[in-house]
Design a protein around this nucleic acid. Structure first.
Lengths: 187, 187
DNA sequence: GTCTATAGAAGGATAGAC
DNA sequence: GTCTATCCTTCTATAGAC
């Protein structure tokens, strides 16, 4: 069995279990069992469970933005792409059975002294916010609007975050759908 | 030592540790050690660690709304009371060193099959939302506003939730402050 | 690089004395 | 109702063979 295959098995299993069960409730033993490998094999690739967590976050980052790009490429205008942000998160919450935001799960589960984890999550959230900033600028809104560009960005960001959180709690994406209408009015 | 004192010690210790470290990372052993009691004493009051969690959530609920009522009573108008919702959360995040929302922490840490935990968190979030609904109705807004009452409620709710999450991630309440100006414009 | 086997600590929970 | 002492399980991580 080639190393790369073992690594893939680890990552895919960790990906699934960390999201579905949470990081702290997922033991090394369960990961190696479901990945079909042995314990020293795992520790050959990662020096600790925390090291695996950081790799998991990096992988999440790549998968998430790649998924967003694929999802958005069929939409043309900035407004359509903003709406696609909501539809993308709706589609993912449906696919992952409304288990919430993977980043929020981690950051709410890990103590503050895990600096690298916090930085990793902050980077994701910030980069997502930058996508919104870029789209709002490209809207080319007139200056006499009720909200400034910066304020509109904050509302979009808040509706996305809160929308996913509510979806997790209620197993429904109604709030995310309603948010789209609100944003349309505020643009 | 009277039972009620023991119970108080347990609750206060669990309150602090569950919030600061998280539920899964806080062991029974640490709770009894810091509370200064013995293990069977704890299991005399709670039949399991999960039972203690439910008591913790009930206590949080009472403390939170009591704190909000005290905080808001000096404000008169509905708009001031809406602003007080943001200021209350800002003051709490400062006091608790930006460790985020206690309810979100729990709901992101516990598996879905813990139905009682989810219902408890959903009840808190819903009751908080009802406070917003009540305040927005009392604003008596004209019908020709850009957003309907329901939409304004959703934006206020989203800004609060997202604001606390961002505060947790960045150790800053800037987003919550900015949200107040946005809401003032939308009212 | 992968395995079997195991170490050493910490987890939740309980028996039985007082 | 509270205690000391202990149970069994699970945890992360490693030693040493192949």
């Amino acid at each position: 069995m080639k190393p790369v295959v073992v690594l893939d098995k680890i990552m895919e299993t960790a990906d699934r279990l960390f999201y579905e069960q949470g990081f702290n409730l997922t033991g090394i033993n369960q990961i190696i069992e479901e990945a079909g490998i042995s314990k020293p094999s795992l520790y050959n690739h990662f020096k600790s469970k925390n090291d695996l967590l950081l790799a998991y976050l990096d992988r999440q980052y790549a998968i998430w933005f790649a998924g967003l790009d694929t999802f958005s490429e069929s939409y043309d205008t900035p407004l359509e792409k903003i709406m696609a942000l909501f539809d993308f998160r709706i589609s993912r919450q449906i696919a992952r059975e409304y288990k919430g935001c993977a980043w929020n799960k981690i950051v709410n589960e890990v103590p503050r002294h895990e600096v690298q984890v916090f930085e990793n999550v902050a980077k994701f959230k910030n980069d997502m916010r930058m996508r919104i900033v870029d789209l709002v600028v490209r809207l080319n809104r007139p200056k006499n609007k009720l909200l400034t560009d910066e304020e509109l960005v904050q509302v979009i960001y808040a509706e996305l975050e809160s929308g996913v959180m509510v979806a997790h709690l209620t197993k429904s994406h109604t709030a995310l759908e309603n948010a789209k209408n609100i944003i349309r009015k505020l643009v």
